[in-house]
Nucleic acid binder design. Sequence first.
DNA 1: ATAGTAATGTTATAATATAACAAATAAAGA
DNA 2: TCTTTATTTGTTATATTATAACATTACTAT
Lengths: 162, 162
Amino acid sequence: MTSKDKNSPGRDHDRGARVESVLEQAETLCRERGARLTPLRRRVLEIIWENHAPLGAYDVLQRMNAEGGRNAPPTVYRALDFLLKHGLIHRIESQKAFVGCATPGNAHKAQFFICRDCGTVAETHSVEIGEAIEASATRAGFLVETPVMEISGRCKECHDDE
Amino acid sequence: MTSKDKNSPGRDHDRGARVESVLEQAETLCRERGARLTPLRRRVLEIIWENHAPLGAYDVLQRMNAEGGRNAPPTVYRALDFLLKHGLIHRIESQKAFVGCATPGNAHKAQFFICRDCGTVAETHSVEIGEAIEASATRAGFLVETPVMEISGRCKECHDDE
DNA sequence: ATAGTAATGTTATAATATAACAAATAAAGA
DNA sequence: TCTTTATTTGTTATATTATAACATTACTAT
Ligand SMILES: [Zn+2]
Ligand SMILES: [Zn+2]
Ligand SMILES: [Zn+2]
Ligand SMILES: [Zn+2]
């Protein structure tokens, strides 16, 4: 069992419901934009949300093909590109993995707190951090475009447990 | 010419000297720690510093073998691991590339401002950003260990130029 | 219906990274 | 010094992540 498969029963008891609502939200968002959330793309988004931790592209692929599918890597990468473009997922660079965006629809600069123990990712949008970065950038004459902020450490549950 | 090869003459005119001093500093540091900065490792560090922008592992390899070398990937990855372990280089996750550390020796949590235009990376250690992250983490009960802060955008020179 | 566009299928391959084991080299102890 | 041990490097193979290129299918709009 890899860390990506870990699942703590007790947590995420209503995950199914949340995934459903996230998918509906994605449908709405895409409809509004005239973007096509095809069954394939929708399924990829669903798979990503079904897992409590970020999933690699090939993990997604494996799940897509679990029940007899015959998809190839480009298929999943294209779906991921679509979902990224529309802000429905984020790519966690330090993990080569993808995670659902909790607040899609509005462009935002997020921070990710990634537990090295249980793998969960919490997405925040701290203005404080944003401002600190802007301040630092401004001093250097730097124009911020896409900040990647991936803070690895241990979540509350995991460092309480020890 | 890839972006990794770009070089603006006029900038970096005394780079050679700086690389030398960085290498001496690395020597000292390793001696103090009883770590062995072998010719191979030293050469990798030198190659990384010679380039103004982060270098991928295979770029390093190519440069190592430019004058007839016959090194294989594990060789360069092992050297990179050594340099990472001793804080002599950083890995830029969002670029799958490596860059020399400007202030090795002391453990530090750095931010990287990466110009999408010229590729240069500026390493900073803003306490303000550090504190903002700590504050945000504390609110979530999160224990920060290894923050990855890679801020992509445009450096002063490059957005002045337009 | 037809033409044009967007999405998916398919095959191959590029780019990044590591496993496993052998050989050489350096450090440590007798 | 000689021998033992640990570290480093060499070598081959392979795993993992990602994309190129082109064919086919399915939508959309006229
Ligand atoms: Zn988000
Ligand atoms: Zn945790
Ligand atoms: Zn540094
Ligand atoms: Zn620049």
